[in-house]
Design a protein around this nucleic acid. Structure first.
Lengths: 150, 150
DNA sequence: GATGAAATTAAACCAGG
DNA sequence: CCTGGTTTAATTTCATC
């Protein structure tokens, strides 16, 4: 993982559809080493996948809620069960087990407040052992990037 | 935006490197309409961009903190200034203006707790008009996806 | 590790229904 | 809107340094 690798990763984070030729030009290299480095970065897991990033307003997922969840009982079985169930909820964009007073924080994306209500009523609160639920809504997204600085 | 478009978006969210030919096979279509639909979905903004998703452990950004920020004064000029400054902080992965007691919630990714300390000390707290800062750290990432269900 | 060329495959374009 | 063929360009492989 030298500077050339890092530059390649920086470029691919911004635009995964760029050609090896263009990257090679930026790095004053030929296509082959760029190609081989990308393959290696994929193989070694630095690049997990390539994704199309969609516009959540246009696809109708513009309501974002951050939901703090605390468990009633904190034994491993309940925690594991919660984590497994969360994986299958398509409204859950992110979920973190937290240090501090609150056990989990979830980022939820839905079409409307009505859909949020339905999500909590029929999906989230059906999970066993949930103690406290506390949601705050996003008024405005200031920044959201998939790029890491490297 | 018909069912074919939605299926294409679902596929591209999971794997942006898939060929038009493979998508065409899955949809029982030829390459041309798939190609044209993707181009249209890009042009109309449904697809914002294509990104390489990196492994944050491997690139050394494995510490995630959620930071609640409240402003001292709530006039527009201060808020705008805060939002502009946040854009340039490379440690900030996400930032939301929230409804409720707290003004902003930031998701921060850094290499270590020491780096987090430096981030707060030398970058975040240098921004004018910050009142309260309150960080909780992620113990475990349960779910994190860029895919929306459509 | 890199170059440069050759082979393979995909993207991009277009005439026609 | 789709089919199918053509052109153009990128990916992938490989011999060589």
């Amino acid at each position: 993982m030298d500077e050339i690798d890092k530059t390649i990763l920086r470029i691919l984070q911004k635009d995964a559809k760029i050609t090896a030729k263009e990257i090679a030009t930026q790095l004053n290299l030929t296509i082959s080493p760029v190609y081989e480095r990308i393959r290696r970065l994929e193989k070694e897991g630095y690049i997990k996948r390539y994704a199309a990033i969609l516009d959540k307003e246009l696809i109708g997922r513009s309501v974002t809620g951050l939901c703090q969840v605390s468990m009633q009982y904190h034994n491993a079985a309940f925690i594991d069960n919660f984590e497994k169930q969360i994986q299958d909820l398509e409204e859950v964009q992110e979920c973190y087990h937290m240090a501090g007073q609150v056990d989990f924080i979830l980022k939820i994306n839905v079409k409307s407040l009505e859909d949020y209500h339905e999500f909590v009523r029929y999906k989230l609160s059906k999970i066993e052992n949930i103690g406290v639920l506390n949601t705050t809504f996003v008024l405005k997204e200031i920044k959201h990037t998939s790029e890491f600085y490297i």
